[in-house]
């Protein structure tokens, strides 16, 4: 299970970087989306996959009777998903506005602030 998940995460990272290296804005944004998803899965995987053991502590006791899944990574991922969603929404609007204003379709056309 871990191996499959690791390969999926690696594939997502690879695809994301590949798309980021293109010079078209749409691919750049899809690359950023894939990147944030790859990282979310990575956090999930790095913290350890535990199946079918919900982190529920029985009533009256202070700690779980057996080893349970770590709930913290899920909280971290949830936060990261919300943040990346907001940031990507902003990025989409920024890109669409920019390319309308500049009448450009290609990132190579945006060189005026570089020199």
């Amino acid at each position: 299970m871990e191996l499959v998940a690791a390969i999926v995460v690696g594939g997502l990272f690879g695809a994301a970087v590949y798309l980021l290296l293109w010079r078209t804005p749409v691919k750049l944004i899809i690359g950023l989306v894939l990147l944030s998803n790859a990282i979310n899965l990575l956090i999930f995987l790095a913290a350890g996959l535990t199946r079918g053991k919900p982190p529920i502590i029985p009533e009256g006791s202070l700690r779980a009777a057996q080893a349970v899944a770590d709930p913290l990574p899920q909280a971290l991922i949830l936060t990261a998903i919300v943040i990346s969603f907001g940031v990507l929404a902003f990025t989409l609007v920024l890109f669409s506005r920019t390319f309308k204003t500049l009448a450009a379709t290609h990132l190579d056309e945006m060189k005026t602030t570089d020199s």
Binding site: L32, L35, A47, P73, F90, T91, L94, F95
Partner: peptide
Amino acid sequence: EGAIKYVTLNLISSAVFLTGLGILY
């Protein structure tokens, strides 16, 4: 135009930060 460059590279930097953070945890 400046904002596009600024936003993209800073997003990638945050992504790398989050990756390191996940592995560290």
